[in-house]
């Protein structure tokens, strides 16, 4: 399989990272060599293998329904690039 410029543009869109044509071309090369290497997995037959999603083979622990976190708006907003003390502020969303 091979990854072309169109694919790179598509995944750059999905991952919200703009890439110019030069970087996109470089990425085509990089990703193709990485995927050539990844294709090795196709040597293995895995139809009957159960996928392993978590290595910690226990189950989820549940916490009780208690409110512990208080109003920490100041802390939450402190690091933001833009805010108005009440809200995070971002450039207009275009629908």
């Amino acid at each position: 399989m091979s990854i072309d410029l169109k694919t790179i543009k598509h995944i750059s869109k999905l991952s919200r990272i703009s890439v110019d044509d030069q970087r996109a071309k470089k990425l085509v090369g990089d990703l193709n060599s990485i995927f050539d290497f990844i294709e090795k997995l196709n040597e293995l037959k895995t139809e009957n293998v159960k996928p392993l999603t978590s290595i910690a083979e226990t189950t989820l622990k549940l916490r009780s329904d208690e409110v512990q976190s208080k109003n920490i708006r100041e802390q939450i907003i402190k690091n933001s690039p833009q805010d108005n003390e009440d809200y995070f502020v971002v450039p207009k969303v275009i629908e």
């Binding site: 916490r63 208690e66 409110v67 976190s69 109003n71 920490i72 939450i76 009440d86 809200y87 995070f88």
Partner: peptide
């Protein structure tokens, strides 16, 4: 997360780090 779910709170006052 452990923040409250009450309706009508001041903006961003029921927000935890999570």
């Amino acid at each position: 997360s452990t923040s409250a779910t009450k309706f009508g709170a001041e903006p961003n006052t029921q927000v935890s780090l999570v």
